Computed example of a mutant assay.
Amino acid sequence: MSSLLEVSGVSKTFDGFRAINDLSIQINEPELRAIIGPNGAGKTTFMDIVTGKTKPDVGRVVWGERNESLLGLSEAEIANKGIGRKFQKPTVFEDQTVRQNLAMALKNPRGPFAVLFHRKTEEGAARIEEIAAEIGLSDQLTRTAGELSHGQKQWLEIGMLLAQDPRLLLVDEPAAGMTAEEREKTTDILRRAAQTRAVVVVEHDMEFVRRLDCKVTVLHEGHVLAEGSLDHVTADPMVIDVYLGRSDA
């Protein structure tokens, strides 16, 4: 397992509020990591900084074997480095079929002519079938995305990200609004994806995090409060005080 992403000494202030405070996190490849913490802990800002949506005031964000800095790169340039992000609300093309959604997301040559004249290849078709099986939608390929359940749309969006073959997948609260059965299946999808890449899951549902069975990072006031197994961090007195002991957590 090698280091893929290193966030070091990063701070970010918005209108006098320090959302990220000397934050340092290292993500390996492959790895499954859960990030938890109370509202305002800096979880979303952390993802915004990694994906280039927000620029930190100070600190380093280093990527890959060549220790490339991600700071100063656009969101598109960072995505092209192999960083995919899934937001809480699924964004799929509702009028297109599941197969078409996955086909549009496949890592193919970009540009107007490449897209215009790109023909379906046997390799592309096989890859779509492979991803559909991985996300549990093999029997839904001909359905339009708008007909899918909330959970199925979440899986389709994860599949669309996997089609781009990212090395790091950032997933924001995937269990929100799901049935117990859908949450269980989502756990399996993420665990499988993390066998060959880094997957970072930001989540509030502690039962879901327990099922992920992975290293957990607890954020509080923009920095790492505790890190380790879920049992380890939930036994930490500071975590209990600032997160688990709160009625609004």
Rank of each mutant, 00 (worst) to 15 (best):
S3R: 15
L4Y: 15
E6A: 09
E6P: 00
S8V: 03
F14Q: 09
D15S: 14
F17E: 15
F17K: 14
A19C: 12
I20R: 06
D22K: 14
D22A: 06
S24K: 06
Q26D: 15
E29F: 05
E29H: 06
E31I: 10
L32I: 15
R33N: 00
R33C: 12
R33T: 01
A34I: 07
I35S: 01
I36F: 06
P38K: 00
N39Y: 05
G42V: 05
K43E: 11
T45V: 10
T45W: 07
M47Q: 04
V50W: 04
V50N: 02
T51N: 08
G52D: 04
G52M: 06
K53R: 14
K53S: 11
K55A: 08
K55E: 08
P56G: 13
R60Q: 13
W63N: 11
G64A: 09
G64F: 09
G64L: 12
E65L: 09
E65I: 13
R66W: 03
L71R: 11
L71P: 01
S74L: 05
S74G: 09
E75C: 05
E75P: 09
A76S: 13
A76R: 12
A76T: 13
N80T: 05
N80E: 10
K81I: 10
I83P: 10
R85C: 07
P90Q: 04
D95K: 13
V98P: 00
R99D: 01
R99E: 05
Q100D: 12
N101Q: 13
A103W: 15
A103K: 11
A103F: 15
M104V: 14
A105Y: 04
A105K: 07
L106G: 02
K107I: 04
F113N: 02
F113W: 14
F117I: 08
F117E: 06
R119N: 06
K120C: 07
A126H: 12
A126V: 09
E129Q: 13
I131C: 10
A132M: 13
A133P: 05
L137G: 00
S138H: 03
S138F: 00
Q140H: 13
R143P: 02
R143S: 15
R143F: 15
T144Q: 13
T144G: 01
A145S: 01
L148A: 04
S149D: 09
S149G: 03
H150F: 11
K153V: 07
Q154S: 05
W155Y: 12
W155F: 13
E157M: 07
L162F: 12
A163R: 00
Q164K: 08
Q164W: 01
D165E: 15
R167Q: 14
L170K: 07
G177Q: 01
G177I: 08
M178E: 08
T179M: 07
E184I: 05
K185D: 08
K185F: 02
T186L: 00
I189L: 01
L190V: 11
L190S: 04
L190T: 08
R191N: 15
A194H: 10
T196S: 11
T196G: 07
V201N: 15
V202A: 06
E207L: 10
E207A: 12
R210H: 03
D213G: 00
C214I: 04
V216R: 01
T217S: 12
V218E: 09
H223A: 03
V224Q: 04
E227K: 10
D231H: 10
T234Y: 00
M238K: 04
V239M: 00
I240H: 04
D241N: 13
D241I: 08
V242E: 03
Y243S: 03
